[in-house]
Amino acid sequence: MDEHRLDGNAAAGSLGEVFSFEVTTAEYACGGCGRTGRLGGAMVYEVRELGIIVRCPSCDHALIRMSHNRRRYLVDLRGTRYLTTGG
């Protein structure tokens, strides 16, 4: 699979297609290791044409998986304990 490593900041445009809040400053808690941080500082893998996976920079756990096909999106947030926004 053609995976491209990006940055949480670079994925903000794509994540912004489904989330109405500013994603880069949203704080996540990783479901794997418990680390908290801003999504802008997380790692992102873009799987060409299919979607993106946001990973925890500490443990590589998948925080958010988002795939899209035309205008249909699938968002999997299992790997995130919570997201807080507004900070």
Binding site: H4, R5, L6
Partner: peptide, 27 residues
Amino acid sequence: VESVGTTLVSLGHDPAHVKTERFGATG
């Protein structure tokens, strides 16, 4: 970015004050 970010934190800088943006192999 990984190395500088980690080093700044280990030098005692507040992680919330160290903001990073990586240019990976983005194609």
